[in-house]
Design a protein around this nucleic acid. Structure first.
Lengths: 231, 231
DNA sequence: TGATATTGGTATAGATTTGGTATATTAGGA
DNA sequence: TCCTAATATACCAAATCTATACCAATATCA
């Protein structure tokens, strides 16, 4: 995969990206003071307005604090650190247990609150997944969107947020290995069939049917996982 | 030497697929600015209209944001940034739905992974709640601890974290009013009995029994809520 | 304490870069 | 042949970047 980003051009976005990378990588710690805006101008070879724009972006992301007359400081974000630790350390089987808890009931709620437009969106995702059945990476991405849009049809914002976080777990790097082991063509075709069956049950407003089909779906995922781990 | 591989003809969907793959794989991070449309033309050897078409597809997929006069940016998967708003705006009945999704299955997992010491801790909470059946505030606090320690007995860190966040919802100020309406003596005594029944099922390693008792428990909570709202 | 240097905050104008749009043309496939 | 997609070009509007200047809050040190 060839690098696409243009390193030569330094705009506010590029400067912000470099500083952001230093913060999240830990080479800039909490409470550290960044160099002054004028010093950063010299280091990055851009004007002060650009540095200022970059710092404002980081401020809006909650990464730094800018104090008038004093300087810019790296903010500590305990919630983020705790959160990232959770996301990083969750193991595949734990995740399946969480999804087993949530998604069957999400199906029931989707039957209660889902609109036809919601189900149409799910169907378009299913079609996309069938077109990309040979690319595990793309399939996994659309699959995450499918389950996110499924929960969105419940109109329960807390539940939507939780599934969003669950999807973050699946995006982690080390999970690419798990996907490459478990997501070969046959499994993907099984998943596609199960997704379509779930959608049919939703459209028929069959709440227990949809919930049970989701349990089957997750059971398939769990079995392919345990098989991959055992091998 | 004959070229076996012809230079791939790139259409909009091919360009979109390459950029999408980079975003999904993580080589393009949130907030990164893509090269300008004109620069992408040169890189992929296609016209600007094709690049434009590809970027519009990614925009419609929610992967990219296009800012007039500025550039195209990789979007961060939402959910995370609205955390505070979610916690603050969750309504009582939405919360009950979430707990309905999570807690019965948590009971099943507790039966599988819970130790006797975990159940002893739950029992001490139940005793405390019975002693404080006349103080809604204290009862609610211990009740939150009970459900948190219940999920801790599953040893599933992601699940524990989720329930922790769900408990944050109940700490919100405006929920004190809900508690004062719904938590009078009779309901608290019902809850205590249900807690004890759940614990008995857990100790007997009766997973479906515990799950069903939890459903009854949540059903009681939901009914007292709808009654309070209706009044 | 008080003077001085340093820092961020704001404003300006002009040159440059970027996406938005419209049009006419070309290439390739059904 | 017709139709779709891709190309090539031109121009507009919006945002960015630069350079400079000055103000206000803070830090530093005698």
């Amino acid at each position: 995969m060839t690098a696409i980003l243009d390193k030569k051009r330094m705009g506010a976005s590029e400067v912000a990206a470099e500083i952001r990378a230093m913060i999240v990588a830990g080479s800039l710690n909490s409470h550290d003071r960044l160099p002054s805006e004028r010093a950063l101008c010299a280091r990055y070879g851009v004007s002060r307005g650009t540095i200022r724009d970059a710092l404002l972006r980081l401020k809006n992301e909650g990464l730094v604090e800018i104090r008038l007359g004093s300087g810019s400081y790296v903010l500590e974000n305990l919630a983020r650190q705790h959160y990232e630790a959770i996301i990083r350390n969750t193991r595949p089987l734990e995740l399946v247990d969480v999804r087993f808890a949530l998604e069957p009931h999400i199906c029931r709620l989707a039957v209660l609150h889902g609109q036809v437009a919601d189900f149409d969106r799910l169907e378009s995702h299913i079609n996309e997944m069938e077109e990309n059945a040979d690319d595990a990476q793309i399939f996994a991405h659309i699959d995450a969107r499918f389950h996110l849009d499924l929960v969105k049809s419940t109109n329960n914002s807390l539940l939507i947020w939780i599934i969003g976080e669950v999807n973050e777990v699946r995006k982690q790097e080390q999970w690419a290995k798990v996907r490459s082991i478990t997501l070969e063509g046959a499994i993907i075709r099984t998943y596609n069939a199960q997704h379509r069956a779930i959608l049919t049950a939703l459209r028929a407003r069959d709440s227990e049917g949809a919930a049970n089909l989701m349990k089957e779906h997750l059971d398939t995922a769990r079995k392919s996982l345990t098989q991959a781990i055992g091998s």
